[in-house]
Design a protein around this nucleic acid. Structure first.
Lengths: 111, 111
DNA sequence: TTTAATACATAAGAGTTTTAGGTATATTTG
DNA sequence: CAAATATACCTAAAACTCTTATGTATTAAA
C-alpha cells in the first residue's frame, strides 16, 4: 500500500460523511474540501466520480444539476437510505479501529 | 463494503504486527490468533497465503519449515526490512486514522 | 494569450480480498 | 471404528476499489 492511498472503503465513508455535514456538494468541491482539511488523503477524480455514480445508483445519493455561468454542476445530497448508510459506515470504521487496537494492543488515536 | 471485511492494506499490517509480537508464526496460526483476539476481523486463507508469499518475495519475511508429526508447518519471521516496514505500516495506519478524524470531526477511538 | 483552475467524465491496469475450490494429515465423536 | 471436524497448506476465477492516464469544455489568472 502506498503511504498516501486510502484504505478500502474509506472513500465512500468520506463522501457520505461530508454530505451529512454539508447538505449538498458537487464532485470537484469534495476533492477540494478533502485536500483542505486532510492533507495526506488525496481523492482522485478517477476514483471519486465512479464512486458518486455508484452511490447514486444504489439510491444513497440524489443529484440536482445547477447551471453556474455556462457550466453544469452536479450537486449530490443524501437520501434517507444514504443517511442510514452513513451511520453504518461510521460504525464500521469505529469497529475496524477497535479491532485493530485489539490486535496491535495499542492505543491508536486519541486526537 | 461488507461490514466484516478488512480495509485495504490492513491484512499486511496485521501480519507484520503479529510477527513483531510473536517472533515466528505459521499461516494457520495467524488466522486462529486473529479470530481469537478480534472477533469481527476474519482473515481468510485465500487472502492470507498469497499475502505471506508476497511478503516473503519482497524480503520482509523469511520462512523455515518445521515437521510436526507427518505434516509441514511454514514458520514466518520478520527480516530486518520487515521490521522497518512494520514501523512504516503502523505509522500509515495512525496517519490514516488521524486524517479520518479531521474529516469526520470526531474522536474515533480512545480504547 | 497562454496557463492554470474549475468541472465533468471514462477506460485500462494494478492491487487486494472474496469465493470456491483442492490436497492431505490429525483428532474428536458418535 | 467410521465419519466428521480440525489442522495445514495451496491456487484460481471473480469481484471490487483505486491509480494512472486521458479526454472535453468553461472560466479565471498571469
Amino acid at each position: 500500500m502506498k503511504s498516501n492511498s486510502l484504505f478500502k472503503g474509506s472513500l465512500t465513508t468520506i463522501i457520505l460523511t461530508l454530505l451529512e455535514q454539508n447538505d449538498k456538494m458537487y464532485g470537484y468541491e469534495i476533492t477540494q474540501k478533502v485536500k483542505e482539511i486532510a492533507n495526506n488523503l488525496k481523492i482522485t477524480e478517477g476514483a471519486l466520480y465512479p464512486a458518486l455514480h455508484k452511490l447514486e445508483g444504489d439510491d444513497l445519493l440524489t443529484v440536482s444539476i445547477e447551471k453556474v455561468g455556462n457550466r453544469n454542476r452536479k450537486y449530490y445530497s443524501l437520501t434517507e437510505n444514504g443517511k442510514e448508510e452513513t451511520v453504518n459506515k461510521l460504525n464500521n470504521l469505529k469497529d475496524f479501529i477497535e479491532q485493530m487496537q485489539l490486535i496491535l494492543n495499542t492505543k491508536l488515536a486519541t486526537q
